[in-house]
Design a protein around this nucleic acid. Structure first.
Lengths: 202, 202
DNA sequence: AAAATACGTGACCTTCCGGTCACCTGACAT
DNA sequence: ATGTCAGGTGACCGGAAGGTCACGTATTTT
């Protein structure tokens, strides 16, 4: 049960921290939401700060595992329909997966207070996405789906608006459907703007 | 001196709150940074929360005054060079003005905790910018500077990446120069993509 | 000149918070 | 059966936090 409780504490901490911030969260509430008493936490972590550090370590490790190697990244799609479907799935996952949402909110809240959170925030919100789509767009250009332009610029032009909509969903979850529709509309617009005339068909 | 002290408290509160968050800020430090003692603050505000509410009221009022009426918004530029110059100035101001930066950081940090901050965040980061540029782009289309497309979609496609770069500056101020250069490069790319062939000349 | 007001001070109160500790208990190894 | 130990408990601690209050004093009002 030991490892289990530790994980439950981490999970609860992610929930609380992502809603009220590190400073706005207290150990009593956190542990009591797990049916434990405050001091029980200290069997698993040295301090409140160690929970925070562990959470960040896990985020960094997860990010490295998920995006560290190009092998893990999605391949360039073969048709524009594939592209639309792929991005749709990607955005949906990133907006609906509770853990991913909480991670993003945590980084948003704590980015000005913690150096590692700051770094991760930039990766999560900007450079990571851009790099991923730079590869994808370069591949799509090779396949004749996209106009030949600077793939990094296109990736930035595509991912930044998508990222803005994701942030909107984090902030106002009730607008999720609307935001997802706008993401799709924007993707279609992007395809219409940069796609090759025959790119949509096989 | 009364009104003066009150304003100094608000200013210091904006600084502290935008760096450490509402929960992470304490009144002692805040007032002592002004050479006052904690209890002096209670001559001007009922509570810590009232400072927060006043700050938000001011932000809302400022936002309404600045962006509430179309008359206050910048007019559509006459040439692409004007457009480039205008956006350059706008981004520069928004990234360099300390008060604007702190306001944005505050909203970023507190958006998940306070309903009014949430609303303002969406306006500041997304809809406000988009609406402003929807008008500008519609005007530019009328003047034959931009391809005729949905101006709202173009505004979204333009402002979201700019907004992402502004957030980057807030997070990592040492990257400001780089980000401003990228904002200009993106603007040029945008012009190249959506501008009319002869739009750049008079 | 006297009274009222505005504003700042320092001592004090209460509550909350992170953290410690002696103790209990059930699982498990010997 | 017994000793060890992981994991949970509740009482307790020191300090920090928000907030109150009686008091002092300079400025304004009348």
């Amino acid at each position: 049960m030991a490892k289990d409780t530790r994980d439950r504490i981490l999970k609860a901490a992610l929930e609380k921290f992502s809603e009220n911030g590190y400073a706005g969260t207290n150990i009593r509430e956190l542990t009591e939401s797990l049916g434990l008493v405050k001091s029980a936490m200290y069997r698993h972590f040295e301090s409140k700060e160690e929970i925070w550090n562990t959470l960040l370590d896990e985020m960094i490790a997860y990010y490295a595992a998920r995006f560290g190697s190009p092998r893990n990244l999605p391949p360039a799609p073969d048709t524009m329909d594939d592209f639309l479907e792929m991005t749709g799935r990607l955005v949906n996952l990133t907006v609906r997966d509770e853990k991913i949402v909480m991670t993003r909110k945590l980084l948003t809240i704590e980015q000005f207070r913690d150096g590692r959170a700051r770094e991760l925030a930039t990766k999560h919100f900007l450079t990571g996405l851009t790099e991923m789509f730079t590869r994808i767009f370069a591949g799509m250009m090779d396949k004749g789906l996209l106009r030949r332009e600077d793939p990094a610029m296109l990736a930035f032009a595509y991912t930044a608006p998508i990222s803005a909509l994701i942030h909107l969903c984090d902030r106002e979850p009730e607008k999720t459907e609307e935001a997802l529709a706008q993401a799709e509309a924007f993707t279609r617009h992007f395809i219409a703007t940069y796609g090759m005339p025959e790119g949509g068909k096989r």
